[in-house]
Nucleic acid binder design. Structure first.
Length: 773
DNA sequence: CAGCTATAG
DNA sequence: ATTTCTATAGCTG
């Protein structure tokens, strides 16, 4: 018995999969919104297309994706409902999804109107219940709905017991369909089989509002009878074309054809996959659908050739998009524009996209009394900032000095942060996964924020705003400290004993696109990270600290200082982190150290700092030192001090901590900001904003160079103020008549960032050593 | 990583 | 032949 069940687990038929496919989904939703439509031929219209229609309309010959003009000809009394805003369909889709989740957590959405469910566990439970009855009731369970093939074959062909399980599956499918009908008034089809591919395909055998089951013994035949290759999910137009070119015309020929022949044409992976598909083999799991990775909108349109029209479209898209983001509750840190240019040569599916990272501070998050968790809205003024970013991305696709025609405009948010509270919070992450101990949540003075003239928004959970500049809102990895990406990456760099602090250095925080977004104000190209790293490494070697350099932290530039973490940034990506946490066994942490949730912390008025202590601190000492440098570098461009805020004598004793090569000295205080320890000071004056600790460790020649570049930086800033210099911005080349005003407008808007960009745009040594102040 | 293509509904 | 409005996975530089 045990042996048999082990064998059974290795059978490819052990699972019970149900595919649920709503009938003519959009049209059904519209029928619910207006029940009088049920008795009439109904089509749902997007632009000039009838994207779907009910069965009354189908009876008149209306097909999916038919032109409106054509449909009207076929059926003059066709009722058309515009369905370009997908909100009602999205909401209904969500209701369906939630009902399905009551049967099993293993529900995977495929579009708005289809779902896969792995009901194996439910089936097994019912099997056991039946066995416990010990009655005469050992007959196979009644099969509900259609059986493939339709020749009266019974469901007992396979010895592994899959027929029995699938019969139970048909009962479950029936229950699901009934519930959807009663609770939502929706009809659907269901396919029941032992894998996703077959469940999906067999479900459409009988439509609408019916269900069909398929057992393994007839899978091959079933696939063969599909005939058309593109009926197989996974074989799209391109692949079908290639197969047809190769002389493979239908499923049967794909089943028969030489695998080596396929391998030559498609490579090993694809060839094997194609063969498997042809025979109905598919072992891929039902992957539970979580929060979306992107939230986007797009709008096709008749050619647009004026910048302001484009901007207006983007504004509307952004507002609509924010409704979804609000509902979602996560803060996105990347925005992408999607454009289709009118181009007869290229296919209409051809799209160009540009994306940019954005600051979380553009959003405000608040908890909502109503059920659904936190909501996210745009921060004050964020709409205009985002729109500016969007238009700049637009201008990277479209050369405004030439005529253009845009036929599709899209906007999408991605890279979502997620609030995590409780067991998966970041502080627990620190406690459990590392040797770190959360010592205290100390209040960091927000003078560094105030000093640069920014008001901190007490009421929001958003991060403090960065100084006002034309680039405000951009999130640029190399210039702005944002820990979240590093958290994402940390998931895959598990080796480090201190995941918070160490990155394996393989990934650069800087990205080309980030910098090209900045390039309009940053005259110099972005500093090469490797250059900084090498510079730092060399400095270390001067001090003979090579041992510390053999630590997992290879690249100083990739390290983030935990002492600089803003608690409100401590959000993890939802699903990924959930998975990682759940799959990692932790030793339990002291409950007393269970931290306040990031949410509540960040509501307080001051910026917060996580102060941490590590037991093997000596090993990471060098990391911390490196952090000081790196963070300064990251911080300098986005929060470059205005001239008024550079204290000429800032290297006073209070600001400086002791110069000491002994690592243990660091254990008392990692965050220099909180250090009361004034220590003995080096004689060399330290440039403003540079960590004296760091400064003092530099070779004399570098110190001198640093001071020199500091002075020149001051001079530049002074000059900028004196001249009222504005940053040069953007392409202001010859504009044709219709776009001239746009260009002027564009230039006028460039004013914001003047001093900053001039003062620190030089790629000076000083900039790299600016401290986080 | 950024951007594109293929895929699916 | 190809359209609409999404969303994801995977490839490439």
């Amino acid at each position: 018995m045990d042996f048999a069940s082990v064998l059974q687990k290795n059978e490819p038929h052990q699972r019970t999969i149900i595919h649920i496919d709503m009938d003519y989904f959009y049209a059904q939703v519209e029928e619910i919104r207006d029940p009088t439509l049920k008795s009439r031929p109904l089509g749902v219209q997007q632009k000039n297309i009838v994207v779907t229609c009910n069965y009354n309309a189908r009876a008149k010959g209306i097909k999916k994706l038919m032109l409106v003009s054509e449909a009207k000809k076929l059926c003059p009394d066709l009722v058309l409902v515009v369905g370009e805003d997908l909100t009602p369909y999205r909401q209904m889709s969500q209701k369906i999804f939630e009902i399905l989740l009551n049967y099993t957590p293993l529900v995977e959405k495929l579009g708005f109107d289809e779902n896969f469910m792995d009901v194996s566990a439910l089936v097994e439970k019912r099997e056991q219940e039946k066995n416990q009855l010990e009655s005469d009731d050992i007959d196979a369970p009644t099969v509900v709905g259609h059986i493939y093939p339709s020749d009266g074959t019974t469901l007992n062909a396979c010895r592994c017991g899959c027929a029995y399980r699938l019969a139970l599956g048909t009962q479950i499918a029936q229950e699901i369909r009934e519930e959807l009908s009663i609770k939502l008034g929706l009809t659907c089809c269901a396919g029941i089989s032992y894998n996703k591919l077959l469940a999906k395909l067999v479900g459409s055998q009988y439509k609408p509002n019916q269900q069909t089951v398929l057992v393994s013994t007839h899978a091959e035949q079933f696939m063969r009878e599909l005939c058309d290759l593109n009926r197989i999910t996974g074989i799209g137009q391109k692949t079908e074309c290639l197969l047809l070119e190769s002389g493979v015309n239908n499923v049967e020929e794909l089943q028969r054809c030489d695998i080596d022949f396929l391998k030559k044409k498609f490579g090993f992976e694809t060839a094997t996959k194609l063969k498997d598909l042809a025979f109905g083999r598919d072992n891929c799991a039902v992957r539970p659908t979580g929060k979306p990775k992107t939230i986007g909108l797009e709008d096709s349109c008749k050619p647009i050739s004026v910048r302001t029209d484009v901007e207006e479209r983007f504004r509307l898209l952004l507002l609509r998009l924010m409704e979804q983001v609000a509902e979602d509750g996560r803060i996105p840190i990347c925005i992408k524009v999607v454009l289709r240019k009118f181009d007869l040569q290229k296919k209409s599916s051809h799209r160009e996209t540009k994306q940019a990272n954005i600051l979380p501070s553009l959003f405000k998050s608040y908890s909502c009394a109503d059920s659904g968790g936190p909501k996210v809205v745009l921060a004050d003024g964020a709409q205009e900032k985002l729109l500016k970013i969007v238009m700049r991305l637009f201008e990277r696709v479209v050369d405004l000095s030439k005529p253009f025609n845009i036929t599709l405009i899209g906007l999408a948010f991605s890279k979502f942060q997620q609030r995590k509270v409780g067991s998966s919070s970041i502080a627990n992450f620190l406690i459990k996964k590392t040797d770190l101990e959360v010592q205290s949540i100390t209040s960091l003075t927000n003078t560094d924020v105030d000093a640069i003239g920014v008001t901190v928004d007490d009421t929001s959970h958003s991060t403090p705003n960065l100084p006002s500049s034309d680039n405000e809102g951009f999130r640029s990895s190399p210039t702005t400290f944002q820990p979240s990406d590093q958290f994402y990456r940390r998931r895959t760099t598990a080796a480090s004993p201190i995941p918070m602090l160490v990155d394996n250095g393989s990934e650069s925080g800087a990205t080309n696109s980030d910098f090209s977004d900045f390039s309009e104000t940053e005259v110099e190209p972005s500093p090469k990270k490797s250059r900084i790293s090498r510079l730092l490494l060399n400095k270390r070697r001067c001090f003979g600290n090579s041992a510390a350099y053999n630590s997992p932290c290879e690249s100083a530039a990739d390290v983030a200082s935990p002492s600089k973490l803003r608690v409100c940034d401590l959000r993890l990506n939802s699903r990924d982190s959930d998975r990682d946490f759940s799959m990692t066994s932790f030793t339990s942490a002291s409950p007393n150290n269970t931290p306040t949730s990031p949410l509540s912390i960040s509501t307080t008025a001051t910026t917060q700092t996580l102060s941490v202590q590590t037991s093997n601190l000596t090993d990471s000492l060098e990391d911390f030192r490196a952090n000081a440098l790196v963070f300064s570098e990251q911080h300098s461009m986005s929060s470059s001090p205005s001239i008024n805020n550079i204290p000429m004598d800032s290297c006073t004793s209070a600001e400086q901590s002791e110069t000491n090569n002994n690592a243990k000295q660091y254990t008392t205080s990692i965050t220099n900001q909180n250090t009361k320890n004034t220590g003995n000071l080096a004689n060399i004056p330290c440039p403003a904003g540079v960590d004296p600790q760091v400064f003092n460790e530099l070779p004399v020649d570098v110190q001198n160079e640093l001071i020199a570049s500091w002075r020149s930086s001051l001079a530049a800033a002074a000059a900028a103020v004196a001249n009222g210099t504005l940053s040069s911005l953007g392409p202001s080349g010859a504009a044709n008549a219709s776009q001239k005003s746009n260009v002027v407008n564009n230039t006028a808007k460039a004013g914001g960032g003047g001093v900053n960009s001039t003062a620190t745009q030089k790629n000076t040594l000083y900039r790299y050593f600016l401290r986080n102040k």
